[in-house]
């Protein structure tokens, strides 16, 4: 429980720090905070927008949480998100379920390239997953300029997906899927023998091996589940929000998932709160630009500040 208290304090401290750094731009911290608040939760649209941003963040956050729990450093959420979107688009003609299933499979398969290289050639997945991100970005760029370019042929983007997720009040059904996924992830990690083995592998692979756990299989499994979550995020983003692919489709959701998961202390249920926090931060940052003219970098800056504060607070705690 104390871990989460530290996370909450860190998040709050980061917000205060951010607001005060606004003073450098000649704004009062208080007015900045109220702009962020009104821009992220102040109206129905703002709230819907925050929720829309939180959905992919929740899924990529879960992806990171599961992988890190198992001691697998999957930094490839961005690439898995992209191939998830690609697969979902291609499979969209077969319906929503098939499309999302394809997204998960593609994400899992893409991530598994990294675990295969780890298991057969001992290539560190921190590197391979990052490299696979670049590969996926180029794959996407080639696809939208080449084989998947819209039929009108005008712009480097694909045609609309054949199906779309149903919407209620400006928020698509993906939010339900994402929430279900985080409950599932929690159940998997903390309520099943498979989850126990994943966690044991992450905490102490040597002990896990001596306890008869096939460590390699755990790594592969964690990577596949993690990739599936990121792929699902891409699929849902496609069917719920963008409806088509273009080069900037992933928009950093894969990387932001790392921040989301770290703030959530790698706990699947806490990831819900964490993703809402970052979703609100990004949406609020938009309003901050429009209303106060503060650069877009503030959202990224905010993410960094949150993580740094978190690290500082954890160390303060560790020292005591």
């Amino acid at each position: 429980m104390r871990r989460f208290a530290v996370a909450v304090i860190a998040a709050a401290a980061a917000i205060v720090l951010l607001a005060f750094s606004g003073a450098l731009f000649g704004h009062s911290p208080w007015s900045l905070l109220s702009i962020v608040a009104s821009g992220s939760v102040g109206s129905r649209f703002a709230l819907a927008s925050t929720l829309l941003k939180s959905v992919p963040l929740l899924l990529t956050g879960l992806s990171v949480a599961i992988a890190f729990r198992a001691g697998v450093w999957n930094i490839g959420g961005e690439g898995q998100f992209i191939v998830g979107g690609l697969a979902a688009l291609v499979a969209s003609r077969f319906g929503i379920v098939a499309s999302l299933a394809a997204a998960m499979l593609a994400g899992a398969a893409w991530a598994s390239i990294a675990s295969a290289m780890r298991l057969w050639r001992n290539a560190p997945e921190v590197l391979t997953t990052i490299l696979l991100n670049f590969t996926a970005i180029h794959l996407l760029g080639w696809s939208v300029n080449g084989p998947l370019r819209e039929h009108a042929g005008q712009y480097p983007q694909t045609d609309l997906a054949h199906v779309a997720l149903p919407e209620i009040g400006g928020v698509h059904f993906g939010i339900v899927i994402a929430l279900a996924a985080s409950v599932f992830a929690w159940w998997l990690l903390y309520r099943t023998a498979a989850g126990l083995r994943l966690r044991a592998t992450g905490l102490n692979p040597n002990a896990a091996r001596w306890a008869g756990i096939r460590v390699g299989a755990q790594l592969a499994r964690a990577m596949a589940i993690s990739g599936a979550a990121a792929g699902l995020a891409g699929g849902i983003e496609l069917l719920g929000v963008t409806h088509r692919l273009f080069e900037r489709f992933a928009a950093g959701y894969g990387y932001s998932g790392i921040a989301v998961a770290l703030l959530a202390q790698l706990h699947p249920l806490a990831t819900i709160a964490s993703s809402l926090f970052f979703g609100a931060l990004v949406t609020g940052a938009g309003e901050l630009q429009r209303a106060a003219g503060i650069s877009a970098g503030v959202a990224t800056f905010g993410q960094a500040v949150v993580i740094l504060t978190l690290i500082v607070f954890e160390h303060v705690r560790a020292d005591r």
């Binding site: 966690r199 905490l203 102490n204 040597n206 002990a207 001596w210 008869g212």
Partner: peptide, 17 residues
């Protein structure tokens, strides 16, 4: 190093197999 997962509870360590 090889016997127990220090961060896990006794119950969890006992259930690893």
């Amino acid at each position: 190093r090889d016997g127990i997962v220090a961060e896990m509870t006794i119950a969890e360590n006992l259930a690893l197999k």
